[in-house]
Design a protein around this nucleic acid. Sequence first.
DNA 1: GCGTCCAGGTCTACC
DNA 2: GGTAGACCTGGACGC
Length: 293
Amino acid sequence: MPINLFLDAPKNFSFWQTVCSHGWSQLLPFEIDKENWRLSYVFANPYLKNPTAAQISEAEGKLKIEIADGKINSKTEEIILRDVRHILRLDDDLRNFYKIVKVEKSLAWIAKDNAGRLLRSPTVFEDLIKTVCTTNCSWALTKKMVANLVEKLGEPAENGKRAFPTAERMASVSAEFYKDEIRAGYRAPYFAELAEAVASGKINPETWLASDLPSAELKKEMKQIKGVGDYAAENLLKLVGRYDGLALDSWLRAQFYKKHNGGEICADKEIERFYEPFGVWRGLTIWCDISEK
DNA sequence: GCGTCCAGGTCTACC
DNA sequence: GGTAGACCTGGACGC
């Protein structure tokens, strides 16, 4: 028998704005079912043998989490509810952000549509690996690398869908595996080294969520990891709730040139100057502005 | 079919 | 601190 769990969402929350906020929902173990307006994910589960697959949707003003495999205990239920709150950013307070963007006519839609919550993974580790997969390649290759990681290293749930691999599992394979099986190219030794560092406790990316460090210092710490440069670190900062970096990549730059510079290329400093008025929210402002649907 | 370019960049060496 | 060149992969494009 399937089990349904429910969560209350904040008033200024939009399920689909969050699910479609950026490309993460296209990366396994996330999957979107647009016909039935559901988001699927496979949650890791240390309290049961297998991970737990679930489908999240909106129902009667609440968030409904449907678990096909009904064999879950109260600990599992607690983990899934906690993770759903985390990935959908239900506890993020965007009131100050909305106050700022409301003033700008062209950005007022952000507050009106309750946009700005960026979908993230249950763990910073997963977001870190996925972010490295986005660097210096096409989006198609990013999806392929992440799919390979999940399909070749992830543990299966009862329905056969696989979870994102743990650091321990990722540390158990060699750099050659990442090169030959994951098709990670030059990133292969980075993954092997990072997984080992996290599995051994040398690095704990989860501490970034509640770090007291100023963003510039935290960014420096993130950049100590091989494969993480300016773009990747600033993208990760956004995913841990800090929006004072723009995370400029070639796509964002190209869209900015089109939208705000008559198609002409300009220096990054010009882009930074454009969003400077939005202060600590500038990274979220540029993302919403440029990715407006 | 083949060669080239480049995409949701980063690292290293060098100045 | 700034810059040039190398780095994997695979799809798009021109020929």
